[in-house]
Design a protein around this nucleic acid. Structure first.
Lengths: 99, 99
DNA sequence: CCGTATCCTCGCCGATACTG
DNA sequence: CAGTATCGGCGAGGATACGG
């Protein structure tokens, strides 16, 4: 059945984007997040860039966007996104070991 | 003591580079690797780029370079590099789950 | 075999300003 | 609050050729 095992590319396509790991890291401790929270947390991200990241993550089925009121919405991980958290955890612990 | 836990940046600095995850993936199955092997495996990587990656990985203490004969050498993971393999494994399994 | 040297393109992303 | 619009710089990395 040609199970193409052993590539790392799909994850790289997400993780490799600037800011994305930081954005996803938010979900290690929170269930939902809003646009401005991500802006505040990263401190410096351009709204244009942040928007682009969220669009891509949504297209890839990693997050879902949910309006909570007019002019307000929140983002949440899908199952596919939740499955990405172990990657983040590993990156986290490696990073803190080798600061 | 301001233990800055909970960043993902150090790993991102390595993993985020184009080609690097693929290069490191080699070490999931092999202990040492040579320049031309990496060229063959990736298929398309520019020698200039490959060289740059290896230099950076060496500077970061993730691999070591060892000449085996004049005009021949091999690369090997350090402990710091070996500690990076779990990240790669996680990326691998996520990628194969969501091809 | 293992790279380095030059040149050059392309697209990422920051700055800034503005809308629903 | 949650984005979109426009513009522009800059640097990563590809193409190609060459050297130890």
């Amino acid at each position: 059945m040609a199970t193409e095992i052993g590539s790392v590319d799909a994850a790289t396509n997400i993780i490799g984007d600037k800011w994305t790991p930081r954005l996803l890291r938010f979900f290690l401790t929170e269930n939902t997040v809003r646009f401005c929270q991500l802006q505040d947390m990263t401190g410096d991200i351009n709204p244009r860039t942040l928007s682009a990241r969220l669009v891509k993550l949504e297209q890839e089925g990693i997050i879902v966007k949910r309006p909570t009121s007019p002019a307000r919405c929140e983002y949440e991980l899908t199952q596919k996104g939740r499955d990405l958290l172990p990657v983040l955890s590993q990156m986290d612990s490696w990073s803190s070991k080798y600061s």
